[in-house]
Design a binder for these strands. Structure first.
Lengths: 226, 226
DNA sequence: ACCTAAATTTAGGCAAGCCTAAAAATGGGC
DNA sequence: GCCCATTTTTAGGCTTGCCTAAATTTAGGT
């Protein structure tokens, strides 16, 4: 019950469609890097499992059942706990954790999960600022929004950054962008141009293109400091 | 290069035959819990790999090549480092570590291996007293011998215990037998009867049958204490 | 030399997970 | 209502890693 392929598929559905939206065949095929025909086969299998993992209507994509969502959240919990564990206990850098976690998330037991959660003090967010699902399937939430939508002239705090591209993480790290760091948006250049912003207390102005800016989420700053 | 099945087979050859002896088809079939016919197929594959993992002569079993030995020792290093890590850092009990390590040993990277070795202070022995191969493939050695061969009336120190049977470990744990603990052999009962011995400073006399005694290795005590 | 136990080969099979190419169905937009 | 893009189906294929049963070979002991 629950091979690696199944786990990855459920995780992909959750990441593409969330709790109760449908994920499309094409989207899953891209996410999982397999052919659409293979996805169709996998979806049929997942929906015909004894307690089904997904609810699947032909030509209308797949939606997670309660069981499927629980499993997806469990894998994501594994992944994010492992990332934080690698970072904090084993001294992995920010950009190294994702790849290792991608393998380990399928290999650890519930016991292992509990133990590292305990060692880490039952953390709520991983090193990139992503919320770590709790064992009961609930998510700690933090009201945040896309950096793209930030008002020019205002300050905000980095909430989370995408962890999929190690080189992007290295770059962000090199300019000091991490969850919790304050940024100030100077202006948005016209015609979907770059965002010009300052990081932390530094004077340097950085230009963030659409790809980079799109991978960052922010939240309002609590006190109107500095 | 190096699937889980291959790794397990190389590890089994090492465990059955060591560095330069041959492992038999039947022995491997038992160890791996697969049929002899499947073993023959696997051995042929391993010996025909591009840099071959084993040297294989029909009807004469298999012997590890340098490459095969290196791989086997790497997996065993993974396994034993993970066992110690689970025990020391994640508070696993003695008897829980083996099963978890059996899965994780195939999933961790060299980086992970290095990091936990560093956190643990480059340890030489795992929680059961087994030597942890070094990265260069050498083994820390400790001159030890079988408990079965111990002289009645003498003292010795427990060097290592087999980790394969959790219930046996629980039992040993409950009577205080751990690597480093001193034991005193009172007598060996006739006709391959049990060994009567005392553990540590306790007065109780324990009877060790052949199975139990066979899973324990001892070494001479340094000082003739107490 | 012969016998036996171990090992090997042969032949066929199964399941998971993927692939391809081509054909058929479908649904949503216009 | 039609068309196109997406999706699904069909049909066939591949690899890995195991299984079985039966036939055969081999090594080693006596």
């Amino acid at each position: 019950m629950g091979s690696e392929a199944i786990d990855n598929c459920l995780k992909a559905i959750y990441q593409l469609a969330g709790d109760d939206e449908r994920a499309t065949t094409a989207g899953l095929a891209e996410q999982l890097a397999i052919s659409p025909a293979s996805v169709t086969g996998m979806l049929k299998k997942l929906s015909e499992a004894d307690p089904p993992w997904i609810e699947y209507q032909k030509h209308h994509g797949a939606r997670l059942t309660d069981r499927g969502r629980a499993r997806a959240l469990e894998i994501i919990r594994h992944h994010r706990l492992i990332e934080l564990f690698l970072h904090r206990v084993l001294d992995y850098s920010w950009d190294e954790v994702h790849v290792e976690a991608e393998k380990l998330e399928h290999a650890i037991s519930e016991t292992f999960e509990d133990r590292i959660a305990h060692v880490l003090g039952d953390p709520e967010f991983d090193p990139h600022g992503h919320p770590i699902p709790r064992r009961d399937g609930t998510l700690p939430d933090r009201a945040d929004s896309d950096l793209i939508d930030m008002e020019p002239g205002t300050d905000a705090e980095v909430s989370r950054v995408s962890d999929h591209d190690p080189t992007m993480l290295q770059h962000l790290s090199s300019i000091g962008v991490r969850p919790g760091v304050r940024i100030h948006l100077l202006e948005r250049r016209p015609f979907d141009g770059p965002l010009m912003l300052r990081v932390g207390d530094e004077q340097a102005v950085h230009a963030f293109g659409a790809r980079l800016a799109g991978s960052i989420r922010i939240r309002d700053i609590r006190s109107a400091a500095t």
